[in-house]
């Protein structure tokens, strides 16, 4: 018969060993489908949607109680119109920036009419500080893994798996494991934008020390990753200084205010079979 204190120790040891095995298995095969994750996410996303719906219902009813129904609706409509117009503006600017040679090569019409679907953010990440959210659109709405997510300000992030039928997880571009192909709009110098866990939360890497980079330069998506639409704003250069090696140390402030995001647009164009830059699911 074991002493109770010894049994507690054994239990603790067993839990530790179990976790080490669990983590090791995942590190070796990250691409494998995790049943626990898929089932829990699918179930919990519905609970989150119901909770979010309930809270929004109460908030909406309370706000509209004070005879603000018409003003609120009109305001909402105008905001939606403004958001759509800003998205169109980004598309137009991207088109203007392209050379005539590229315009001949690409299907211009296809590039200007991005099919999108609006989605509402229904929950954040249960782990504090992790920059992913859950949206109320899923595989039944046509969403697929690695589809780009944008907002009127610019690029937000991408859809990461597994998808539920009516919910999906979005990894923000400012996530510590996120990355995307990017270029400086003024000089067309290309590099890679990565999320970092500090302020400002983005860094532009792989830009040569010889390249011309100025504070305030606009950084846009280059599209080389096959996920993010070309020309969409990512952010502006906050600082650029000569690095120790071949490349400059460039920090970028995002164009999108991630803390204030409520609704986003998912670009319904599947990724072009390119391995995404950064960690596919890296999170806390």
């Amino acid at each position: 018969m074991l002493d109770i204190r010894q049994r507690t120790g054994y239990l603790f040891l067993a839990v530790l060993v179990g976790h080490v095995i669990l983590i090791s298995a995942q590190v070796q095969s990250r691409s494998g489908v995790r049943v626990l994750e898929a089932v829990t996410f699918g179930f919990f996303s519905r609970v989150q949607a119901v909770t979010s719906g309930g809270i929004n219902g109460v908030r909406g009813a309370w706000g509209n109680y004070f005879a603000l129904l018409d003003v609120r609706e009109e305001n909402e409509r105008l905001r939606q119109q403004m958001a759509e117009l800003e998205v169109r503006l980004h598309e137009q600017r991207a088109l203007a920036a392209r050379t005539s040679q590229l315009q001949e090569l690409l299907d211009l019409q296809a590039a200007t009419t991005l099919p999108t679907i609006a989605a509402q953010i229904i929950a954040g990440n249960p782990n504090p500080g992790v920059r992913t959210v859950t949206i109320d659109r899923g595989s039944s709405d046509g969403l697929q893994e690695n589809m780009a997510v944008i907002a009127p300000g610019g690029v937000v992030g991408r859809v990461i798996g597994p998808l539920a039928s009516r919910a999906a997880r979005v990894q923000f571009l400012v996530h510590g494991s996120a990355a995307a192909g990017a270029l400086i709009e003024r000089t067309r110098v290309g590099g890679m934008i990565v999320g970092v866990n500090r302020e400002p939360p983005l860094m532009l890497e792989l830009i040569s020390n010889l390249a011309d980079v100025q504070v305030g330069d606009l950084v846009v998506a280059s599209g080389v990753d096959g996920i993010y639409p070309t020309g969409f704003a990512i952010g502006t250069v906050v600082s650029a200084r000569r690095g120790d090696g071949l490349y400059q140390d460039i920090t970028v402030r995002p164009a999108v205010s991630f803390s204030a995001l409520e609704e986003v647009l998912v670009v319904l164009v599947p990724a072009r079979g390119v391995t995404p830059l950064g960690d596919p699911e890296g999170g806390r």
Binding site: I23, R34, L36
Partner: peptide, 8 residues
């Protein structure tokens, strides 16, 4: 499981 990434 809800957060995504490595479980454990």
């Amino acid at each position: 499981a809800l957060a995504g990434g490595i479980i454990g």
